[in-house]
Design a protein around this nucleic acid. Sequence first.
DNA 1: ATACTATATCAATAAGCATTGATATAGTTA
DNA 2: TAACTATATCAATGCTTATTGATATAGTAT
Lengths: 105, 105
Amino acid sequence: MKPKCCVDKKSVANLSQTVEFLKIISEENRLKILCLLRENEKCVCDIWQYLNLAQNLTSHHLKVLKDFGLVSSRQEGLKVIYSVNKKVIKKYSKLLNNYLNSYGE
Amino acid sequence: MKPKCCVDKKSVANLSQTVEFLKIISEENRLKILCLLRENEKCVCDIWQYLNLAQNLTSHHLKVLKDFGLVSSRQEGLKVIYSVNKKVIKKYSKLLNNYLNSYGE
DNA sequence: ATACTATATCAATAAGCATTGATATAGTTA
DNA sequence: TAACTATATCAATGCTTATTGATATAGTAT
């Protein structure tokens, strides 16, 4: 009989969601962005300068993060300020921990 | 001044390692393999049948996991038995948690 | 209105990597 | 030995996505 994680609807769905999340954060610049924003919210111009990244590329990665719900943005004059959605991060962290945290001593 | 995670040698190195790990496990079939092997060690033929995956593709993913140290293998007759290296998983889990677990309530 | 700044979008290219088909290797059995 | 089974490797293809350059949008200031 096949193991749960290969057949059980809920298990397969959880794994899929987890993989989606992992794909988002397994990009170096995006993980750095999350790091940066953990301290406090920042405008795009700060982010791309901290990362030494092209402005448009930074915008692209921010869009990926935002589309997935990991960050939010608000306009402030000319600038757009991004911040982390901590609740969402926590949600996916929990999902992920099902796969990583069950390795006892 | 640039934030730690963008300049501090150790921070940057940790982030890089974390990203490498994430790239490995952010592939659906590989995460499934880790799930399967968490229960108990399995031969390749069991794995590819559980996953409905081509034999050679399964071998490929196992090689990726093995090269990174997440799994080990031993020969047993015709079969090759793979098992999870729990310690390694734990090591990278901890690294990863630096980025995900610091989002308080 | 014009010039300027910050950000986003679009099209094209390039890089990485999963997938496939064919074949090789190596252990097993007759 | 030959036939068979389990696994690995290799070359080719295709898909996804990061990256780049050019341009658009929209807010601000003169």
